[in-house]
Design a protein around this nucleic acid. Structure first.
Length: 793
RNA sequence: AGGGAUAUGGUGUAAUGGCAGCACAACAGAUUUUGGAUCUGUUUGUCUAGGUUCGAAUCCUAGUAUCCCUGCCA
């Protein structure tokens, strides 16, 4: 995992001793199959813990009895194990702790922090208010602890119908954060739970259950996606109210979508139901089961996950990143053999009937052999052998099959394959010349009569082939993207931001009508089936061997449908095909990348921004007067306008000395101290800043030193001038001293010096930085610039 | 509308006041018995406007755009 804001937090917490070890959890809801979206979240959760020597938990978030099933639990765990994760003993379910959550709920009631509400759902929504208006208390909000306890116990006992009552936290009905307006903790639901059976008729809500379970499991860093930011307030409220210590903390990350993919559970279900795909494991599906059946390896999936990156922005990842991870993995894993997917017959006139030549051809191209870390390469069995032993026998008879696409009666410009009268190299077998061509009534080529040339004839291209008498018939399933457009869920084909949820499987409102619009972007050619032939050597390879069929792509036997006597090969992924790209361009079709219409650039000048310049902020007459007063005292107009709109800054500045230093102190207040001032973390008064401003104005200290000192003083409360005096931070204006420092730096970075003299002017910043660092920021910048320019001339 | 989050090439991600880097994609060339792979090179970027600073992607101010929240889902 590359460093990111989560690893930064983990390192900080480990270093400070806040937690002895990091503990994370991946909490899927068992209400659907794991898919590529889950890979990202699970990788972040698991890999972070693994990387810092902690432990990771797999947890089934099964608080909703209507959605969770054992089948999904097993499938998710199975898929994650396939990826290589091993959580050991640490497999949990929310339903493990139903009894404990109940006890915490009673405790909350006893603390006066939760109450049983008995209004209808609609009424509760109405009372909650909206963004503009605060909520109003339910008539039941002030029930006594005894009454709440009694009602809650009777809720558990099953005395009430679904929806008759709920347990709510008593937090803040006026909060601008809607999540805090007395969130529901428990609901009545007379439903059988796949694990708890009929033991319960009340079920905890996510906001109550999740933090508690994190705490019970000893989780330290609880990661979730960005839309839970508002829920963190409940999380923290619960942890503090119940007094957990040490306690887990929630951190949110941005989601990652994938182009050309939908992962909405309901939409995937629709694809299955409509028969667009053959099932949840149809190799075109984004589910892990499907990718597994497709032949993608766990290593490739993990490599993909590691490349995506983590931050706090929702982003859409280019599908080519995934495809690249798959190809990159297979390139060094898949032995090369030949298969003809769409065959046309070739008769070699100068090869006697009945004669078979047996060729010994290498499984691997030279570059894979060259790059092998141990100097060996794999056989289809996986056994690693010296390169000279990694060969297979390939028969060559009088009749062959070649790819229909590899012969053309009317070759386009740049065509490097077989033409009438032309030559081409048969992979591993020599040069072939096409002499005569038979066609059927429709003009399709049926047979090519050819001659195998002896000696070292030349040919521009190389094509693959199989010997007709020896080849094994096979079915080929050629998969392509399920959708024609990057964002099938968008309103138009150019939208490229699919709604894609890495962690949750059921955020969708099951009751809302499903927008089936995405179906119109289905790729009609997402599956092409052909019948052709593979070379006989593959018969002896293990069933799970991934092969590269040269010039065609990576394939393996379909684990479900392939039979010993009826081979079915599925294409895992194509090879990159620059020729196809060229021909597309030649036909005037835009290459794929260009088809991606640029989305409107965020921040590109919109209609409003373009013409009108930002208008000055409107100030009240009182504020205008205050601005006039501050500017008269020496503050800049900009600083003054900022100051008058911020009471805290203004209050601080009220203590400033009103002399020649005022403008500087005002500037520091606005530019350097504002954030700390608002959070009440400034330990010095404005009056203490005047001596510092005087020192700066007189040139005795540099701006850099002044600001550093300011920050330190603000944090410690010590008078800045005293820090300067104690540490002797006055400006270095000694030319000889500076020249010495510069000489040392230049001597230590000869390459940079050369680059600078070669024209890389940006390096001046680097050198200045080095000098500043060496002098603790005390060097006079003007002098530094001058001396540096001289020294580098 | 109120609250919250975010903004770096075509895409994804680094740079924690000092060289805007890396990967994917694209393009060009080399190489190649896979139109694959590999190698070399090139194009393209700090949302906008001000400010602080010798120096700003980074700090300050204002604006713009996008996303999230107002389920008894998670």
């Amino acid at each position: 995992m590359t460093p990111n804001f989560i690893t930064e937090i983990v390192e900080r917490d480990l270093h400070s001793g806040k937690y002895p070890a990091v503990v994370t959890r991946f909490p899927p809801e068992p209400s659907g199959y794991a898919h590529l979206g889950h890979v990202f979240a699970s990788f972040l959760d698991f890999q972070t813990a693994a990387q810092y020597g902690g432990r990771y938990h797999l947890r089934m978030d099964d608080t909703n009895p209507e959605l969770a099933t054992q089948e999904y639990v097993d499938a998710i765990a199975d898929d994650l194990r396939w990826l290589g994760w091993d959580w050991g003993e640490n497999f949990y379910s929310a339903s493990d702790n139903f009894e404990k959550y109940y006890a915490y709920a009673e405790q909350l009631i006893r603390l006066g922090k939760a109450y049983v509400d008995s209004v209808s759902g609609d009424e509760m929504a109405r009372l909650r208010g909206d963004a503009g208006t605060p909520g109003t208390p339910s008539p039941f909000r002030d029930r006594s602890v005894e009454e709440n306890l009694d009602l809650f116990r009777r809720m558990r006992a099953g005395e009430f119908a679904d929806g008759a009552h709920v347990l709510r936290a008593k937090i803040d009905l006026a909060s601008p954060n809607m999540k805090l307006r007395d969130p529901v903790l428990y609901r009545i639901l007379h439903a059988s739970h796949y694990r708890a059976g009929d033991n319960w008729c009340i079920y905890p809500m996510y906001d109550f259950q999740h933090p508690l379970q994190d705490a019970l499991e000893g989780v330290t860093h609880s990661m979730c996606s960005l839309e839970f930011v508002d829920n963190r307030a409940i999380y923290d409220w619960l942890m503090e109210t119940l007094g957990f210590s040490p306690r887990p903390h929630q951190y949110e990350f941005g989601r990652r979508s994938l182009e050309y993919t939908v992962v909405s559970k309901r939409k995937l279900r629709k694809l299955v139901q409509e028969g667009v795909v053959t099932g949840w494991d149809d190799p075109r599906m984004p589910t892990l089961r499907a990718q597994r059946r497709l032949g993608v390896t766990p290593e490739a999936v993990l490599a993909f996950a590691a490349q995506i990156g983590v931050n706090r922005t929702n982003r859409t990842v280019d599908i080519s990143v995934y495809e690249n991870a798959v190809r990159d993995d297979l390139n060094h894993r898949a032995p090369r053999v030949m298969a003809v997917l769409d065959p046309v017959r070739v008769v070699i006139g100068n090869l006697p009937e009945g004669e078979t030549r047996t060729l010994s051809l290498p499984y691997w191209p030279h570059d894979v052999i060259r790059d092998s870390p141990d100097g060996r390469v794999a056989l289809p069995t996986g056994e690693r052998v010296p390169p000279e032993q990694a060969v297979r026998e390939v028969p060559l008879g009088r009749e062959l099959y070649i790819e229909r696409e590899d012969f053309s009666l009317d070759p386009p410009k740049g065509y490097k394959r077989l033409t009438r009268g032309g030559t081409v190299r048969l992979r591993g077998a020599g040069i072939l010349r096409a002499d005569e061509v038979e066609t059927d009534a429709a003009g399709n080529v049926t047979t090519i009569h050819a001659t195998l040339l002896e000696g070292d004839a030349k040919a521009a291209g190389v094509i693959h082939w199989v010997s007709a008498a020896h080849a094994l018939p096979a079915e080929f399933r050629l998969y392509d993207r399920l959708f024609r457009v990057p964002n099938p869920e968008g309103d138009n084909p150019d939208d490229i931001a699919p709604d894609f949820d890495p962690e949750r499987m059921s955020h969708e409102n099951e009751a809302a009508p499903l927008d089936a619009g995405f179906l119109r972007y289905l790729n009609p050619h997402s599956l092409r089936v052909t019948r052709g032939f593979v070379e006989p050597s593959v018969a002896s390879g293990p069933a799970q061997t991934r092969y590269q069929f040269e010039r065609q792509g990576y394939f393996w036997r379909d684990p479900v449908d392939s039979r010993e006597d009826a081979l079915v090969f599925g294409r895992i992924i194509t090879l990159k095909d620059t020729w196809a790209k060229e021909t597309q361009k030649a036909e005037g079709r835009a290459p794929q990348a260009a088809q991606k219409a640029g989305k409107p650039q965020p921040g590109a000048p919109g209609p409003q921004a373009a013409g009108s310049r930002p208008q000055a902020l409107l100030l009240t007459p009182e504020q205008e007067a205050e601005v006039a007063r501050l500017t008269a005292l020496g503050a800049s107009a900009g600083d003054a306008r900022t100051l008058v709109r911020d009471a805290q800054l203004l209050a601080f500045l009220g203590g400033a000395v009103q002399d020649g230093t005022f403008g500087q102190v005002a500037s520091w207040t606005v530019n350097d101290l504002a954030a700390a001032l608002r959070s009440g973390e400034v330990g010095v008064g404005a009056a203490d800043l005047a001596p510092l401003a005087t020192l700066l104005a007189s040139g005795q200290i540099t701006t850099r030193v002044a600001r550093d000192t300011l920050a330190r003083a603000a944090a410690s409360g010590e008078a800045p001038a005293r820090i300067i005096e104690r540490e002797g931070l006055t400006t270095v204006t000694d030319s000889a001293e500076l020249e010495r420092v510069i000489r040392e730096i230049l001597a230590a970075n000869p390459d940079k010096v050369e680059a600078y003299r070669g024209g890389k002017a940006g390096l001046m910043g680097f050198f200045t930085g080095q000098v500043m660092r060496a002098t603790g920021g005390q060097a006079d910048p003007k002098l530094v610039a001058q001396k540096l320019t001289e020294a580098l001339a």
